[in-house]
Each structure stands twice: as structure tokens, then as C-alpha cells.
Amino acid sequence: MYEDNILVEQALGGDDGAVEQLYFKYVDSVFRYAYVHLGDYHDAEELTQTVFWKSMQGLHKFKRQSSFKTWLFSIAYRAIIDQSRKQKRQRFLKKRLEDLELRMPQRASVDRQVTAKESYDETISLLQQLPEQYRMVLFLRFVEENSIESTAEVMKRSYKSVQALQYRAQKKLMDLARKEAEQDEG
């Protein structure tokens, strides 16, 4: 994005206001990304801060061959992989998303809010059952609305590999949803 490139240039020039703008523009997205993969609010907060610290320390390495957002998510992706390797066992999404504020319209009825929360919780529960790579591709593509190209760059995969991974992830998610629906009926 053109605006991000200007902010990056200003940040490189020592403008703390530009650094702050970049931070506030992407902090929620990076936090959600970390939370979905780590499943712990405090771990996600810590990782988010680490990602921004690393990005500002390495800002001079940003080549602008991709968007700042893609570059930032590449850092987040590697940080999550590093943290996952350090943990003795993975703890993805064990807590309910009560810690994470749902961004629902203020005028939504209580019934709609409850239904949306239940649907959201069910989706997260299904995502929790997927392998990490599946969760990552689905998050980047559909929550962050990244293109396949950007997702491939973040995940350090080819375009075709991301397409195939996304297809398998969606199929697996649908299979899990069908299986859960069958269990609810039976």
C-alpha cells in the first residue's frame, strides 16, 4: 500500500508518529493471528509485541517487494513457528474466545449476538481440530483477506501450493462440520 510505504519511509527517518500509525493500523490483526494460533491471550499479546519490536528493528530490511502487511505477517508467521517449537506440547485455542472482543454492530439484537457468538465459537472449535498449516492458510485468506500471492509469501510457499493447501483445509473443515452436525442430530 502506498500509504504504508510513506509511513515506512517516515519511520526509517526517525518519525515516532509514523511508527505509532503502523502499529495501530496492524496491531489488532497481528494479535488475532497470534491468538488463533497460540490459543492464549497473554502469549498472543507477548508475541504481538515481539513481532512489532522485530519489525521496527528490521525495518531497514523491508525491500518493498511486497506490502508492509505481508512482510509483517511473515515476521508473525516465523515467530509463531518459533514459539510452537519451544512449547513442549502445542496449546492451540484451548481457551474460549471470551478474552477476544467480538466486533459486532451495536444495534444487533441480543438474539443475533448470541447466535453469532455461538456460530463463531463453533467455527473456532472446528478450526482448532485442523493441522496448523490449514489454520494458517484459512486465517490469512479469509480472516485477513490476503490474496493467494500474499499468503504464499507469508507462508514461504508457491502459489499452487497455497491453492492446494487452501482446498485441502476447506475440505477438511467441511468434513469436520458435517461430522459434528451428524453427531448433533444423532
Rank of each mutant, 00 (worst) to 15 (best):
K88T: 13
I6R: 11
E45M: 03
M1L: 08
L47G: 01
A34Y: 02
G14W: 13
E46L: 02
Q83M: 10
Y33L: 03
A11L: 05
D43W: 04
V114H: 10
T115R: 11
K54A: 09
A18M: 05
A164E: 01
V162A: 00
K117E: 14
R135F: 06
Q170I: 09
Y23A: 04
K61W: 15
P105D: 12
G13V: 01
D184W: 12
L102H: 06
K172F: 04
Y167R: 06
I75E: 05
D4S: 06
A164T: 04
S55M: 07
R78W: 12
K172T: 15
P105A: 12
Y33I: 02
V27Q: 09
E9P: 04
G58E: 08
L59S: 02
W71D: 04
L12A: 09
T151N: 00
Q10Y: 07
A34H: 01
L102E: 08
F139E: 13
T151H: 00
D121C: 11
K171G: 03
F31M: 07
V154S: 03
G39I: 06
K86I: 02
N5S: 11
H60I: 14
Q10K: 12
L72M: 08
F68Y: 15
L130N: 06
R91L: 14
K25T: 08
R112S: 13
D175R: 05
K69T: 03
H42C: 03
K179Q: 09
Q106L: 14
K86C: 05
V110H: 14
